[in-house]
């Protein structure tokens, strides 16, 4: 397992069917295929952290959802530790977990309840999770006295910590982080970033971080890729990217590579 890439993506393509607005009774709404990802190729070595930068709608979430087995591809291939994501999804599911921009929990249930049932989906018995949950909550700095409170009473930062705890509870070897700090206050953001750093130091986890936070990408990742309109236009270290685009910052390199500002956002898929 150690000699093969953690993630190997080759010419990966995903299209969605979009309906044109077409107002009026006499105008039928036309359908057209829109490429969310086209011919994306890259690989991650075991233990590496790679950040993918891109605006909303660039295809970051589509990439994460494809690797999470939540989408069927329209071409190319993707392997996680040698397992074909689309032909052997169950094998991939045992290796992967993710944290997305929305914490996504049953809001009335407590952190302990949410973690407990989801651990069961990964084969963790009640005895195993009873021991593991307090430990993981302590690691993410979650106050023990609030374990029984409904998720809806917790701040977004707290909820995102629980999301990280949920992902780590089942010890994934590939962690997919889809804008994990978007919308967090600066303090929570730093805490979550610090925790991601500690995961890298203490676990043998490979991380794919999709973000539009340039500083976060530079601080956490070994390499940075830029995804623009569904195409991965570059993937290298931050210094190499800056040199390649004659830029002083990653943000300037992004601008030079895409010709766009982050503010020029469009609807996500």
């Amino acid at each position: 397992m150690s000699s093969q890439p953690a993630v190997e993506v080759q010419d990966l393509r995903k299209e969605f069917i979009r309906r044109d607005g077409g107002g009026g009774v006499r105008h039928r709404r036309r359908r057209k295929r829109v490429a969310a990802l086209h011919d994306v190729t890259f690989s991650l070595t075991r233990g590496e952290c790679v950040a993918i930068l891109g605006q909303n709608g660039s295809g970051k979430s589509t990439l994460v959802r494809l690797l999470s087995t939540l989408l069927q591809h329209d071409g190319g291939s993707a392997h996680v530790f040698g397992n074909d994501v689309f032909r052997r999804p169950r094998a991939v599911q045992r290796l992967v977990n993710r944290v997305s921009v929305e914490a996504s929990f049953f809001k009335r249930m407590s952190p302990a309840e949410n973690l407990s049932y989801s651990a069961r989906f990964y084969g963790m018995t009640p005895r195993q999770s009873r021991e593991a949950i307090p430990r993981i909550l302590e690691r993410v700095g979650f106050p023990p006295e609030r374990r029984g409170e409904p998720m809806e009473d917790l701040s977004r930062g707290m909820q995102q910590k629980i999301a990280l705890a949920r992902a780590l509870l089942v010890a994934p070897v590939l962690l997919l982080l889809d804008e994990p700090t978007t919308g967090l206050d600066p303090r929570s953001k730093l805490e979550v970033q610090g925790f991601i750093r500690s995961i890298r130091e203490q676990h043998d986890a490979t991380i794919l971080l999709c973000t539009h936070d340039m500083a976060e990408a530079e601080a956490l990742a070994d390499r940075i890729g830029i995804l623009h309109e569904g195409a991965l236009i570059c993937l290298d270290t931050a210094d190499t990217l800056k040199r390649a685009y004659g830029a002083e910052t990653v943000e300037a390199a992004f601008l030079a590579a895409t010709g766009r500002q982050f503010e020029d956002e469009k609807e996500d898929e």
């Binding site: 087995t69 939540l70 993710r98 989906f121």
Partner: peptide
């Protein structure tokens, strides 16, 4: 439907549960 609303549907369907 509830899982769709809460967003947990993605986590349930990506879990290694048949």
């Amino acid at each position: 439907a509830w899982e769709r609303w809460e967003g947990t549907i993605e986590y349930t369907f990506m879990a290694p549960l048949s």
